[in-house]
């Protein structure tokens, strides 16, 4: 009797849990995967400047990703490999401004690209 009760409780717990797990994030919907999984967490949320819809040069984007910029961390090829980097840079460069974005327009100008550091 007692163990039946426990079983029912466990089953109902598992059911509630499954419900929680299904409430997942919406799919990326055609966005570049790197953008969706890394960049968007800052650049679509107003933490970093908006970067879509500004036709930023792809080479500039690649440079900033590898060097970091002010508080933006650098990303290594072990995290975003050269192919993924070229793809996200091109995608960001060509994409219109994000509708969902809550990003602020304030942003550094491409001319402020970090120079290669001398060691």
């Amino acid at each position: 009797m007692q163990s039946n009760k426990i079983r029912i409780l466990v089953a109902s717990l598992a059911l509630s849990c499954a419900h929680i797990a299904l409430a997942a994030d919406p799919p990326a919907e055609g966005r570049d995967r790197t953008y969706a999984k890394v960049c968007s967490f800052c650049h679509d949320k107003g933490v970093g400047p908006a970067i879509l819809g500004r036709a930023l040069p792809a080479a500039y984007i690649e440079n900033v990703v590898r060097h970091g910029f002010r508080a933006m961390p650098s990303f290594r090829s072990s995290e975003i490999d050269n192919t993924a980097l070229a793809s996200v840079a091109r995608w960001v460069s060509q994409s219109p401004a994000s509708k969902a974005s809550t990003a602020s327009p304030a942003s550094p100008a491409p001319s402020a690209a970090p120079a290669t550091k001398a060691q």
Partner: peptide, 9 residues
Amino acid sequence: DTALAPYNK
């Protein structure tokens, strides 16, 4: 040096 930049930020 250039390629090592991400390790020096």
